[in-house]
Amino acid sequence: MRDILNDLDDGRQFSDPDPMRRAQSQMQRPLPKRFYKRVEVGGADEAWTVLLDGRTVRTPAGAELALPSEAAARLVADEFGAQGEHIDPMTMPVTRLVNTAIDGVAVDIQVVMEDILRYASTDLLYYRADAPDRLIELQAEAWDPVLDWAEAELSVRFILAEGVMHVEQPRQTIAAVGAHLRPRNDPLRLAALHVMTTLTGSAILALAVEAGSIEAEAAWEAAHVDEDWNISQWGEDEEAAARRAARRRDMMGAVALLRAVTAR
């Protein structure tokens, strides 16, 4: 099921969803040289494409990379334009996400929705520390307003738990999340929400960002309350910091694409 949710590159799925490990794998083979000089966007209404020296960009599976707004097309064009001597897909989070949406998510919308709902069933925001007091406070400060928004928006109640022991949410609560998600069945929009969900561990955070209830940067920080607490106590590992930076880039790319496809 998750195969179609991974990024696509050169007609093949990446071997690992973690951006840092993907980058390490990418470095094991030569990057393609930049073969174009001009990057433009063309189109009108809800059919916009990216042109490299006048030729339309296609996805790894050969589909035309068509986007519903000029803003979305310019996000992709800017990533192509920013490439140097070589084309590095790891520096192109929006392009990779668009490829995934067109070649993967569009094939089976339902399976992607179900995966987001699985996150909603075991959302990061439900599970609270039982100590120390300061961490408990930090979690409440970052997470409670988001849950308050979701409860008001969906007319439901969430059950919280201390520690990692699974707590089952009421069936009607998950059904309400599903009903909220159902109209968001555009492949690009859904792909962006899925990336935001998996990178934060929280479908509730992803939906709150989409609704404008929380800023993207604040949501990213909320998703890392526990990690930041541990860093404050024990220091930060250089490799972990690089991995987090790569994941943040993917997150902000997803947010930018979401904004571009929903603003039209």
Results as ranks from 00 to 15, higher is better:
K37N: 11
A66K: 12
W48K: 06
L52M: 07
G84P: 04
P17T: 08
D9F: 13
L51G: 03
L8V: 15
R74A: 03
A66C: 12
F14W: 14
R21E: 08
R12E: 15
S69K: 00
M90A: 13
E79A: 10
Q28P: 00
S25V: 12
Q28M: 15
T95S: 15
T91L: 10
R55I: 03
D88Y: 06
D18M: 08
A73Q: 07
G84D: 04
R29M: 14
G62S: 03
P68F: 01
A63M: 04
E40C: 06
Y36P: 04
L8Y: 03
P30L: 04
G43W: 08
I87Q: 07
G84Y: 03
Q13M: 07
P68I: 06
A23C: 01
S25K: 10
I87T: 12
M90K: 03
E40I: 00
D88H: 13
Q13S: 11
G43E: 10
K37Q: 12
V94C: 05
R58M: 04
L75H: 02
K37T: 09
E46G: 01
R21H: 13
P89V: 05
W48T: 04
Q83C: 08
K33C: 04
A82M: 03
G84K: 00
G43P: 05
D10K: 11
V41C: 15
D9G: 02
T56W: 00
L51P: 06
A66D: 00
D88C: 11
T91R: 13
T95C: 10
Q28Y: 00
T49R: 11
P93G: 06
D10R: 15
T49N: 01
K37P: 00
R58N: 01
